[in-house]
């Protein structure tokens, strides 16, 4: 067993979990933060993307033990005082989601892009999101939403 102390969505938590607990399992099954989704088992689909110390990672490919002492933000943690993050607002405005399953990972990934590149081109957005698979939208409205968010952030 491993003792994990971390700050998750602004709250300090301490939990003891089996050594092999994945971060995605830790978030979903231990902390009940089920907004983070698991769509594959090979680190390909990106539905599980969260931020660890501000950077996007695939939570299905990290152990909970690896993030001990870190600051973790999930999709539940970016809405402040009931107001959605500009990226969430842009996805809503431009229909950047359909079934919503890939959406949390897509949004968390896109926010990280804008942290490093304030005005990305279409090509840069598409290349950045290459690690997030969406089966519904055809990506076009996602790209538009990321550009829209960039103009608001």
């Amino acid at each position: 067993m491993k003792k994990i102390s971390a700050e998750v969505n602004g709250k300090k938590i301490t939990k003891e979990v089996p050594d092999h607990t994945l971060l995605s399992v830790f978030l979903r099954d231990i902390l009940n933060l089920t907004g983070t989704h698991v769509g594959c088992d090979t680190s390909q689909c990106g539905a599980c993307v969260v931020h660890v110390d501000g950077k996007s990672i695939k939570s299905c490919t990290a152990f909970a033990a690896d993030v001990n002492g870190s600051r973790i933000t999930t999709i539940e943690g970016i809405t402040k005082n009931g107001k959605m993050h500009p990226m969430q607002e842009a996805f809503k405005k431009l229909h950047g989601l359909q079934c919503g399953f890939c959406t949390p990972g897509m949004v968390m990934s896109a926010i990280d892009l804008l942290q490093n590149n304030k005005k990305p081109s279409d090509v840069e957005i598409r290349e950045w999101l290459e690690g997030n698979i969406c089966r519904c939208t055809g990506y076009q409205n996602i790209v538009a939403a990321v550009k829209e968010a960039a103009s608001k952030m």
Binding site: R28, L33, T34, G35, T36, H37, V38, T74, I75, E76, T79, M84, Q88, F91, K92, K93, H95, L97, C99, G100, F101, T103, P104, V107
Partner: peptide, 20 residues
């Protein structure tokens, strides 16, 4: 019209079978 279902799905409040 912007979608009514989007807010829950965008904020991680969707409820899929694996979340039950």
């Amino acid at each position: 019209v912007e979608r009514k279902e989007d807010k829950k799905l965008l904020t991680g409040r969707g409820k899929y079978t694996a979340d039950v």
